[in-house]
Amino acid sequence: MEKLPIALYIIPSLIMFCCGVYGFITRKNMIAILISLELMLNSVDINFVVFNRFLYPGQLEGMMFTLFAIAIAAAETALAIAIIVNIFRAVKNIDIRDLNKMKF
């Protein structure tokens, strides 16, 4: 079976990463920001797996890293969701523009 070229994996993954950065900067809803962050973390995972599979097929280091990165991303999301729930209890809103009591 013929393999797809590596660019067909890497370019979508990089587009995903850039979408994540764009979303992180422009979104106003905290859950949407969190989804953007997930996009970024997942594109890292894709990168690691693809580099491992295509460039260094004999080893498993990238795959192992991906497994741990997924677990870490899950922990980060769980904690962020908990903090957002706290914010919602405090201000009844999860719009990031409302969190402007402290600045400069």
Partner: peptide, 24 residues
Amino acid sequence: HEAAVKYILTAVFSSAIFMMGLSF
């Protein structure tokens, strides 16, 4: 709460960027 949400979002963002660098 406000401090925590700012901290966690930037921390996750920075570790995503860091791991992207690591993948390269």
